[in-house]
Simulated scan of single mutants.
Amino acid sequence: MAIGDAQVDAADLETVAQQLGRTPRGTRAIASRCPSGHPNVVQTNPRLPDGTPFPTMFYLTCPKLNSLVSTLEGSGLMKEQTERLAEDPELAAAYQRAHESYLAERDAIESLGTQVTAGGMPSRVKCLHVHVAHALAKGPGVNPFGDEALALLREQALWPAGDCSAS
């Protein structure tokens, strides 16, 4: 099935629908996969089919990973990360670059006419799910807070581990 200018396999869309418990909206591509091969991040179009802006370009779909990231959010990690932005100019610069990269990629698909990206970028950390999805989609070194969250999960041997679909 073609969505936008990308190809998305019908089986992947069905898997994502099962993961989300609903039909996915605005799916452009599978941006990342769990170690088990299932989609764990989808790239969405900047606008949903009805024209509604959808600024979350990378959307975390894996239920296991979503749950683990929610646990990190509940631990106060986002507050601590936001505080470090004010104290660490290098971290703030890396986060600014993540914001600019995200915005440029989204605007290359379709501009929403705003400088707002997602997850609180570039001034705070508002949604760790967005940052983890961005880090998985783009690889290490692009989103410092997504990389940090993934490193914490790996250090704790929580992810990646086993077949996410069996959870």
Rank of each mutant, 00 (worst) to 15 (best):
A2P: 10
I3K: 03
I3T: 07
A6F: 09
Q7H: 09
A10R: 10
A11V: 13
A11C: 02
L13W: 11
E14K: 14
E14Y: 01
T15L: 10
A17D: 03
G21F: 02
T23W: 04
P24C: 03
R25S: 12
R25K: 07
T27D: 00
R28V: 02
S32W: 14
R33M: 02
C34I: 02
V41Q: 03
V42L: 13
V42H: 01
Q43D: 06
T44I: 02
N45F: 01
N45C: 05
P49T: 02
D50Y: 10
G51Q: 04
P53H: 12
F54K: 13
P55T: 10
M57F: 08
M57H: 08
Y59S: 06
Y59V: 14
L60F: 10
T61Q: 06
C62L: 06
P63L: 12
T71V: 12
S75F: 01
L77A: 14
L77R: 05
Q81P: 01
D88Y: 04
D88V: 02
D88Q: 10
P89E: 15
L91A: 03
L91V: 02
A94N: 14
A94T: 02
Q96P: 00
R97T: 05
H99P: 14
E100V: 00
Y102T: 06
L103V: 08
L103Q: 15
D107S: 13
D107F: 06
D107R: 05
E110G: 04
S111R: 12
L112S: 07
G113D: 09
Q115L: 11
G119S: 06
M121R: 11
S123V: 08
R124I: 06
K126G: 11
L128D: 04
H131G: 07
A133H: 11
K138V: 01
G141Y: 11
V142K: 09
P144K: 09
A151I: 04
L152I: 05
E155S: 15
E155C: 02
L158I: 04
L158C: 05
W159H: 15
W159K: 11
P160W: 00
P160L: 07
A161P: 00
A161C: 08
G162E: 14
D163C: 15
D163I: 06
C164G: 08
C164Y: 12
C164F: 09
